[in-house]
Design a protein around this nucleic acid. Structure first.
Lengths: 359, 359
DNA sequence: TACTGAGATGTAAACGGTTACAGCGGCAAT
DNA sequence: ATTGCCGCTGTAACCGTTTACATCTCAGTA
């Protein structure tokens, strides 16, 4: 075992209280005493024991991130954002992936007491009730991309509806009126909102509305590949395909290429999320950009401020605007540019954060 | 605050010991008593306090993963593998990214005492000495993709040298004798080994050896893009480019396309890692496959067994073999296949784990 | 000289669990 | 009736910290 505070105290000829004061910079300690204690601590390789400290201070300097799964670049980007602010504030990160299993989510939530100071939950199909009844009392929570009904949880969402609407409008403006959609999983909240945006746009712009144009998917490349093949069989064939995330767009692109269909020559293709590699596709992917890392960073900031306020703060719901990024995959403008460039047209106008207190 | 074990005990008319026994399934408890306790616990929403438990049992059921950064699909894949076995064994995951800063690594390591039962370290340029002098005594460690000198740490490495060698040999077998290499960061251990494999292959196969053929890179798409542009300016121009990871290969592919160079028509292109999207590129990327998720899973298995052995076990060094995956980006075979297929030829022969005790 | 206050340090009680040990009642074997 | 054992439960020590409070020293001041 490692050395304890008692051993350091004994070795330095002081009491544990003094050693503690030195390590926490609290209360007065004579310079000479401090020096001696630090020297002994160094020699004994003393490090304070996390659990012991947490037990008495009731804070862990750790927050937990509950994710649906750990696939792909969307996940790594959001983690990167979360980590950057956590790191900057001296907080550690506990990650857990509930594979969308109700019982697991429950177990995970309960296991968090005494381990973390707060929770970021990003399970697009967890329901608020499961949360409320299994949450350690008064633990700050932030819901990311989750359905929030009337419940009083802090939350951040992407403007999925607005982004999808803007993309369809963009495609329509390029002359497409038969636009296929590759959907996400039916239970996924993001997916449902994007679908709603598509439908609203199709209706309001009087585009072809055909149930066949809505193709099943689940946000994976594989699903995009299958959907791409199916899209090519539709009659009449759509002139554009809107995949509701980039991973599916990439899979779809592959399917189209494989079948000899040119993009954007024969069909236009668009994605959603604007993950980092999207710009490196050939052709570069037109997408709805959501600043994934920034989303994560923002979530962590909000959570940490709840922690500081000891959870006694006004709950808020925030919607992060999206931006349409036009690249080559839809033809029209932006067909040939270096991968650094390519942001044009705001889907949400103000470019800042839109927020408000839920009714 | 949440309910404590004492409140449950009082409410159920028993002692804390009995409540504890119920929650840990240890020692005999009358069925009726157990039922009553569980009922009270449910009503009070009692959950054991993690820190308190850790303090006395001296185990946290948590392991920490120290990563260099959180970019891209390699990271998410390795995390996925780690998580799957951690999850299966009831362990939690603490992630930390040291941005390769010496002082930060030191601080992180020290902060781990009393927080975790073990550590997976994947900082390709951390040195063993920094580790040894800052590690809480007797904490199980597993080094992933790190340079291991004589030190007695458990470790797992990829057969970087063998994989790179095999790829160059493959390219040579397709008739290329002027092969450019896109390098990783000079300090990165994986990158150095891959470079060494390339050089050894170039020498042993008597291919063009030209310092200009070794182009700088840092494992990012951006670097691959720049390297691709530079490669096209070389005279005589290489007929193949071997990017030492897939992210750079993707960036490079973009640069080549942009310049109007056909792949594999004008140049062959190959990557390393075989990240999931590699097969969805057009053309699909020939790469050195390393089963990233499996690597993570294996690391976690080894670490957990060290934890169980209380760190009193024989230290081992393991090298994970690589597999050459031939797809369309180099011409020759495998030019047209569905994204599911495409694994051929073993770079390391046995297909299993190669392991041994370091000298 | 006695008093005051501030600085430096020590004492001991928490924090919320686990677990060795002891106690107790009942039953079977002696 | 005594003994021994087993199943069930309670008591209290302990894990490694932090911190309120008490104590002590000493300089400055009235």
């Amino acid at each position: 075992m490692s050395a304890t505070i008692k051993e350091v105290a004994r070795e330095a000829g002081v009491s544990v209280a003094t050693v503690s004061r030195v390590f926490n910079d609290k209360g007065p300690v004579r310079t000479e005493t401090r020096r001696r204690i630090l020297e002994v601590a160094e020699r004994l390789r003393y490090t304070p024991h996390g659990a012991a400290r947490s037990l008495i201070t009731n804070e862990t300097h750790t927050v937990s991130v509950l994710l649906p799964d750990l696939h792909g670049e969307f996940f790594s980007e959001v983690m990167r954002g979360i980590d950057s602010t956590a790191h900057g504030s001296g907080y550690h990160l506990l990650v857990a992936s509930s594979h969308n299993d109700r019982a697991e989510i429950k177990a995970l939530l309960r296991a968090m007491r005494g381990r973390v100071d707060g929770l970021i939950i990003m399970s697009p199909d967890v329901d608020a009730h499961t949360l409320e009844s299994n949450l350690p009392e008064s633990l700050p929570i932030l819901l990311l991309n989750c359905l929030v009904d009337g419940t009083s949880f802090d939350s951040i969402n992407i403007d999925n509806h607005g982004g999808a609407f803007a993309m369809v409008r963009h495609l329509a403006s390029l002359g497409h009126h038969r636009i296929a959609l590759i959907k996400g999983a039916p239970k996924n909240y993001d997916a449902r909102e994007r679908l709603r945006g598509y439908r609203d746009a199709v209706a309001s712009l009087a585009l072809d509305a055909d149930a066949e144009l809505e193709i099943e998917g689940d946000f994976s490349e594989e699903a995009g590949y299958r959907a791409g093949r199916r899209a090519l069989l539709l009659a009449p064939r759509p002139s554009a395909i809107f995949a509701t995330n980039d991973a599916m767009a990439i899979g779809c692109l592959y399917a189209l290429r494989e079948a000899g269909a040119g993009v954007p020559g024969d069909l236009a293709l668009a994605g959603f999320d604007d993950i980092p590699i999207a710009r490196y596709m050939t052709p570069p992917l037109t997408s709805v950009s959501v600043s994934i890392a920034e989303l994560g960073a923002r979530a962590m900031q909000r959570l940490l401020s709840s922690v500081k306020a000891r959870n006694a703060h006004q709950r808020r719901h925030e919607t992060l605007p999206t931006t349409l990024v036009v690249r080559g995959s839809c033809g029209g403008a932006g067909a040939a540019q270096a991968p650094g460039a390519g942001r044009a047209g705001g889907a949400a106008g103000d470019g800042g954060w839109r927020s408000g207190v839920p009714p």
